[in-house]
Design a protein around this nucleic acid. Structure first.
Lengths: 335, 335
DNA sequence: CGAGACGAGGTAATCGATGTCACAGCAGTG
DNA sequence: CACTGCTGTGACATCGATTACCTCGTCTCG
């Protein structure tokens, strides 16, 4: 049944014009008489014509497609980011090609190369590389997410790690906590560094004497976080609250708190996770919404694709505290 | 620095041949003398030539791209499926375009239409529609995931919902449970129906008299699951274990069990979720690995793209029980 | 009244790779 | 020796849409 795909030529023929004129109508060129336009439009509808994106892209030298490069497509955080990008893209009839680097620099290079080869119109990248020299004269707009490219003047959408951490710790303080522990990643990444700085900002900003024994830097993949939490609670002067600097640390710490029946400890997690709102108490988080990051990155990219040329900018995705209980527990057992 | 992209014509010129001959070398046509071949190959390397995928696709009438259509790209389950598909695709130099239906039938139609328009080489679809007539003479191979298309002879990769549910319930029985409750979705989907059947299979297979008061069909989005769990535990003869037929029901039920301090109740969840292995006790699950589903679907699709024509088949992705504790609790409080 | 501007539209080249077909040269064959 | 049959090769058309450039009226204005 499905008839042969109609081509521009068929439309032109049906409308009794040349392909060029048909093309004008389709591309909204106004140098066409109303009458001709109507004929062409009718033909388009009659034949169910839709331009071949491949042919169009070839001629224009640019595909109606954007590429999204992330660590791992299956990572829930990036999955949500991508989901939001796709949501914005589909409204603009743009396809989204995904690729993952698996956190390997050479793969990053390969997938980007492949995307350039395809002449994508734009790229959104969670880069793991430090060296972006090969992107310097990119033929298409780039937007970095999660981490800005420090050696490249390009748009980026990141979160205010330092400010967010400070905000979280201050939230705990507002509920009476003064001894607040930090559990976070080892300092390998900029993200971790900034969050620890934010924690220190809050402590010092409140005039509290910093106590380094309250700062635990762990390897969350090894399950250190729970051990660290237990050690913290055994201190002579234990914390009344814990700030967990990332999701994985939270996932490690919380089972320990439950097991020790210390759900009276104040707790805030930088980063949300499934079940966070179904635990008892539900876990208060600093939300760095992947959707917001995806949306902001896509907005910026599409605005450049539309020809706008805003100054290059590093955009901070909004952070907000989602109070669910664990961060609003009053400080107890104060000596 | 980045010189102009080399075209086939440039290669041909550098090698002193026609474009056609260069094309032959690149496409591995053997009707080329060894000497000419060597010259062309050298030129390809010197110029860093790589064929333009767009032009090639246009000529061939087929893009080196596959489309993946799911409910929601951001859904962790589908994200993992897609991640695995992308992993397989990149090895074959195939790009992956994603699109989501947001569970709306008209969107399914629209995104599929768009992908056809792009002339994707193949499609992997988690269809939500019941009517696939418009896919009947698809121009490219289709593989359904998660749900088979019942009105269409097409490959599908699904899980054995009935068998998996039975397996889960039998696992509980092996730990002494005889009164086992079912908490699951309302019966709108085939998936839910099959899982309830599996539960009944196990109960009857064990010679237990079915007790309908142990079967709770809820609307998990409304938070019914927790309420249902509480009601079950208040029964005169309460269950000693619960089989939760899907992830969302588990997410609803578990906080209730924890709140009631009834973590002694046996529990198995059909479908994994974050924190499942960090709760106390950790949650035993029936794992329907999204990676396996993605891999199987991609394998099937690529084998068809490679020209193989295996008979159309509905493939069952493997299911396995991941014992973590909650499913291995011995039955207690037996009257 | 002639010139230039402008509106509406057409012709042919082009994007880059590949399919069709023709052709030259040489080997084998009856 | 004429003929068929390969082998290696290239010229040219083609995929479908867009762009550069041109034509032909008609309108306006000096």
């Amino acid at each position: 049944m499905k008839q042969q795909r109609a081509r521009l030529r068929d439309v032109a023929e049906a409308a009794g014009t040349s392909t060029k004129t048909a093309s004008r109508v389709i591309n909204g060129d106004d140098r066409v008489s109303a009458e001709t336009r109507a004929r062409v439009e009718k033909a388009v509808i009659d034949l169910g014509y839709r331009p071949d994106p491949l042919a169009r892209s070839l001629r224009r030298g640019l595909d109606e497609t954007i590429g999204v490069v992330v660590d791992e497509v299956g990572d829930p955080f990036f999955a949500s980011v991508i989901g939001e990008i796709e949501r914005m893209a589909i409204d603009r009839d743009v396809s989204v090609i995904i690729a993952s680097t698996r956190r390997r620099e050479e793969r990053e290079r390969i997938v980007l190369d492949g995307l350039y080869q395809r002449r994508v119109a734009g790229l959104i990248i969670a880069s793991i590389s430090d060296n972006h020299a090969y992107l310097r004269n990119s033929s298409c707009p780039l937007v970095f997410i999660d981490r800005a490219a420090e050696d490249l003047a390009a748009d980026a959408v990141v979160v205010d790690d330092r400010g967010g951490a400070r905000m979280a710790v201050e939230h705990l303080m507002r509920h009476g906590h003064r001894r607040i522990a930090y559990i976070g990643d080892r300092l390998s990444t900029a993200t971790a560094r900034h969050r620890l700085l934010g924690y220190r900002d809050a402590i010092e900003g409140a005039g509290i004497v910093p106590d380094e024994s309250l700062v635990a830097q762990v390897e969350p993949a090894k399950g250190d976080a729970g051990v660290a939490a237990e050690a913290l609670l055994r201190l002579p002067e234990p914390p009344t609250a814990i700030f967990s600097a990332n999701t994985r640390c939270s996932l490690g710490t919380l089972p320990t708190l439950h097991r020790l029946r210390r759900t009276d400890i104040g707790f805030i997690s930088f980063g949300d996770f499934a079940m966070a709102d179904t635990l008892t108490p539900a876990i208060t988080i600093v939300d760095h919404s992947p959707e917001a990051i995806g949306r902001l990155a896509a907005e910026r990219l599409f605005s450049r694709l539309a020809g706008e040329e805003p100054p290059v900018e590093t955009i901070l995705a909004p952070l907000r505290i989602v109070a669910r209980g664990s961060g609003e527990l009053a400080a107890v057992g104060k000596p």
